[in-house]
Protein backbone atom coordinates (compact mmCIF):
# COMPACT_ATOMS: atom_id res chain seq x y z
CA UNK A 1 0.00 0.00 0.00
CA UNK A 2 2.62 2.45 1.11
CA UNK A 3 4.94 1.36 -1.71
CA UNK A 4 2.22 1.92 -4.28
CA UNK A 5 1.33 5.35 -2.94
CA UNK A 6 4.97 6.39 -2.77
CA UNK A 7 5.85 5.17 -6.21
CA UNK A 8 2.83 6.80 -7.84
CA UNK A 9 3.49 10.06 -6.02
CA UNK A 10 7.12 9.98 -7.11
CA UNK A 11 6.12 9.22 -10.67
CA UNK A 12 3.59 12.05 -10.64
CA UNK A 13 6.14 14.45 -9.20
CA UNK A 14 8.77 13.54 -11.79
CA UNK A 15 6.39 13.80 -14.72
CA UNK A 16 4.95 17.04 -13.38
CA UNK A 17 8.44 18.53 -13.10
CA UNK A 18 9.20 17.32 -16.62
CA UNK A 19 6.09 19.01 -17.98
CA UNK A 20 6.90 22.18 -16.11
CA UNK A 21 10.44 22.28 -17.47
CA UNK A 22 9.26 21.53 -20.99
CA UNK A 23 6.67 24.29 -20.84
CA UNK A 24 9.39 26.76 -19.86
CA UNK A 25 12.02 25.47 -22.21
CA UNK A 26 9.89 25.17 -25.35
CA UNK A 27 7.76 28.20 -24.71
CA UNK A 28 6.73 29.95 -27.93
CA UNK A 29 7.14 33.67 -28.13
CA UNK A 30 4.29 35.28 -30.03
CA UNK A 31 2.67 33.50 -32.94
CA UNK A 32 5.28 32.06 -35.30
CA UNK A 33 2.68 31.41 -38.00
CA UNK A 34 1.63 35.04 -38.07
CA UNK A 35 5.28 36.08 -38.38
CA UNK A 36 5.85 33.65 -41.21
CA UNK A 37 2.75 34.84 -43.00
CA UNK A 38 3.77 38.44 -42.50
CA UNK A 39 7.04 37.64 -44.22
CA UNK A 40 5.05 36.48 -47.26
CA UNK A 41 2.84 39.58 -47.47
CA UNK A 42 3.73 42.43 -49.81
CA UNK A 43 4.68 44.55 -46.82
CA UNK A 44 3.67 47.82 -48.39
CA UNK A 45 0.92 48.37 -45.78
CA UNK A 46 -1.27 49.76 -48.52
CA UNK A 47 -4.51 49.12 -46.68
CA UNK A 48 -6.49 47.86 -49.67
CA UNK A 49 -7.69 44.92 -47.62
CA UNK A 50 -9.23 47.29 -45.11
CA UNK A 51 -6.94 46.31 -42.25
CA UNK A 52 -4.23 48.25 -40.50
CA UNK A 53 -1.14 47.12 -42.32
CA UNK A 54 0.30 43.83 -43.42
CA UNK A 55 1.16 42.53 -39.95
CA UNK A 56 -2.46 42.91 -38.83
CA UNK A 57 -3.62 40.97 -41.87
CA UNK A 58 -1.04 38.28 -41.25
CA UNK A 59 -2.32 37.87 -37.73
CA UNK A 60 -5.89 37.70 -38.98
CA UNK A 61 -5.02 35.06 -41.55
CA UNK A 62 -3.14 33.01 -38.96
CA UNK A 63 -6.15 33.17 -36.65
CA UNK A 64 -8.42 32.21 -39.47
CA UNK A 65 -10.50 35.37 -39.31
CA UNK A 66 -9.35 36.48 -42.76
CA UNK A 67 -9.24 34.43 -45.95
CA UNK A 68 -6.05 33.81 -47.87
CA UNK A 69 -7.51 35.72 -50.80
CA UNK A 70 -7.77 38.97 -48.89
CA UNK A 71 -4.73 40.74 -50.36
CA UNK A 72 -5.48 42.44 -53.70
CA UNK A 73 -1.88 43.29 -54.65
CA UNK A 74 -0.79 39.74 -53.79
CA UNK A 75 -3.38 38.32 -56.17
CA UNK A 76 -3.60 34.68 -57.12
CA UNK A 77 0.06 34.00 -56.52
CA UNK A 78 -0.07 35.03 -52.88
CA UNK A 79 -3.37 33.23 -52.31
CA UNK A 80 -1.85 30.00 -53.64
CA UNK A 81 1.27 30.39 -51.51
CA UNK A 82 -0.74 31.13 -48.37
CA UNK A 83 -3.09 28.22 -49.00
CA UNK A 84 -0.08 25.92 -49.35
CA UNK A 85 1.41 27.34 -46.16
CA UNK A 86 -1.75 26.81 -44.17
CA UNK A 87 -2.40 23.46 -45.76
CA UNK A 88 -5.87 24.44 -46.90
CA UNK A 89 -7.40 24.25 -50.32
CA UNK A 90 -8.63 27.40 -51.92
CA UNK A 91 -10.86 27.86 -54.92
CA UNK A 92 -8.83 30.24 -57.02
CA UNK A 93 -11.56 30.36 -59.61
CA UNK A 94 -13.43 32.74 -57.35
CA UNK A 95 -10.49 35.02 -56.58
CA UNK A 96 -11.36 38.33 -58.10
CA UNK A 97 -7.99 39.07 -59.56
CA UNK A 98 -8.63 42.29 -61.41
CA UNK A 99 -5.17 41.78 -62.78
CA UNK A 100 -2.18 43.87 -61.94
CA UNK A 101 -2.73 47.59 -61.91
CA UNK A 102 -0.35 50.49 -61.85
CA UNK A 103 -0.81 54.18 -61.12
CA UNK A 104 -0.52 56.64 -63.93
CA UNK A 105 -0.12 60.44 -63.64
CA UNK A 106 -2.08 62.64 -66.01
CA UNK A 107 0.55 65.18 -66.87
CA UNK A 108 -1.85 67.94 -67.81
CA UNK A 109 -3.55 67.94 -64.40
CA UNK A 110 -0.58 67.27 -62.08
CA UNK A 111 0.35 70.37 -60.13
CA UNK A 112 3.52 69.00 -58.58
CA UNK A 113 2.29 69.03 -54.98
CA UNK A 114 4.37 66.00 -53.90
CA UNK A 115 1.55 64.53 -51.78
CA UNK A 116 1.43 61.32 -53.74
CA UNK A 117 5.19 60.98 -53.45
CA UNK A 118 4.97 61.09 -49.70
CA UNK A 119 2.10 58.60 -49.60
CA UNK A 120 3.68 55.97 -51.81
CA UNK A 121 4.72 52.96 -49.70
CA UNK A 122 7.28 51.79 -52.25
CA UNK A 123 8.76 55.10 -53.38
CA UNK A 124 7.42 54.49 -56.85
CA UNK A 125 6.51 58.14 -57.52
CA UNK A 126 9.32 60.44 -58.52
CA UNK A 127 9.19 64.20 -58.89
CA UNK A 128 9.84 67.44 -57.07
CA UNK A 129 7.80 70.42 -55.91
CA UNK A 130 6.16 72.23 -58.80
CA UNK A 131 7.41 69.55 -61.18
CA UNK A 132 5.20 66.97 -62.88
CA UNK A 133 5.46 63.61 -61.13
CA UNK A 134 5.89 60.25 -62.73
CA UNK A 135 5.40 56.62 -61.68
CA UNK A 136 8.11 53.99 -61.96
CA UNK A 137 6.29 50.97 -63.37
CA UNK A 138 8.57 48.33 -61.89
CA UNK A 139 8.19 49.72 -58.36
CA UNK A 140 4.44 50.42 -58.37
CA UNK A 141 2.29 47.76 -56.70
CA UNK A 142 -0.97 49.38 -57.71
CA UNK A 143 -2.05 49.82 -54.09
CA UNK A 144 -3.83 53.10 -54.81
CA UNK A 145 -2.55 55.04 -51.78
CA UNK A 146 -1.54 57.90 -54.03
CA UNK A 147 -4.91 58.10 -55.76
CA UNK A 148 -6.67 59.25 -52.60
CA UNK A 149 -4.09 61.91 -51.82
CA UNK A 150 -4.08 63.66 -55.18
CA UNK A 151 -5.92 66.97 -54.87
CA UNK A 152 -6.54 67.24 -58.61
CA UNK A 153 -7.41 63.61 -59.34
CA UNK A 154 -4.46 63.40 -61.67
CA UNK A 155 -3.60 59.83 -60.65
CA UNK A 156 -5.61 56.85 -61.83
CA UNK A 157 -5.07 53.14 -61.57
CA UNK A 158 -4.79 51.41 -64.91
CA UNK A 159 -4.39 47.74 -65.76
CA UNK A 160 -0.81 46.90 -66.70
CA UNK A 161 -0.74 46.83 -70.49
CA UNK A 162 -0.39 43.31 -71.89
CA UNK A 163 2.77 42.81 -73.88
CA UNK A 164 3.95 39.90 -75.98
CA UNK A 165 6.08 38.77 -73.06
CA UNK A 166 3.19 38.90 -70.59
CA UNK A 167 0.41 37.42 -72.67
CA UNK A 168 -0.92 34.09 -71.44
CA UNK A 169 -3.06 31.62 -73.33
CA UNK A 170 -6.57 31.64 -71.87
CA UNK A 171 -7.83 28.46 -70.24
CA UNK A 172 -9.93 26.47 -72.70
CA UNK A 173 -13.65 26.59 -72.13
CA UNK A 174 -15.38 23.32 -72.79
CA UNK A 175 -19.11 23.46 -73.26
CA UNK A 176 -19.72 19.79 -72.57
CA UNK A 177 -18.36 20.09 -69.06
CA UNK A 178 -20.09 23.28 -68.09
Amino acid sequence: MLAAVTSLTALGAILGCGLGVAARKFAVEGDPLADEIEAMMPGSNCGQCGMAGCSAVAKAIAEGSATVTICPPGGKALATALAAKLGISVDLGDVVDSGPQIAQVKEEICIGCCRCMKACPTDAVVGAAKQIHNVIREACTGCGSCVERCPTEAITLRPVPVTLQHWVWPKPEIEAEA
Binding site: P42, G43, S44, A77, D123, A139, V168
Partner: peptide, 22 residues
Amino acid sequence: GDLWAQERSKLKMEAAKKLAVD
Protein backbone atom coordinates in the same frame (compact mmCIF):
# COMPACT_ATOMS: atom_id res chain seq x y z
CA GLY B 1 2.04 31.03 -68.89
CA ASP B 2 0.08 31.30 -65.67
CA LEU B 3 2.86 29.72 -63.61
CA TRP B 4 5.40 32.02 -65.20
CA ALA B 5 3.15 35.02 -64.51
CA GLN B 6 2.80 33.95 -60.88
CA GLU B 7 6.57 33.64 -60.64
CA ARG B 8 7.00 37.15 -62.07
CA SER B 9 4.40 38.55 -59.72
CA LYS B 10 6.17 36.91 -56.79
CA LEU B 11 9.46 38.49 -57.82
CA LYS B 12 7.78 41.86 -58.20
CA MET B 13 6.22 41.54 -54.77
CA GLU B 14 9.58 40.75 -53.22
CA ALA B 15 11.08 43.79 -54.91
CA ALA B 16 8.19 45.97 -53.71
CA LYS B 17 8.62 44.66 -50.22
CA LYS B 18 12.28 45.58 -50.25
CA LEU B 19 11.34 49.07 -51.41
CA ALA B 20 8.81 49.37 -48.61
CA VAL B 21 11.34 48.24 -46.02
CA ASP B 22 13.94 50.63 -47.40
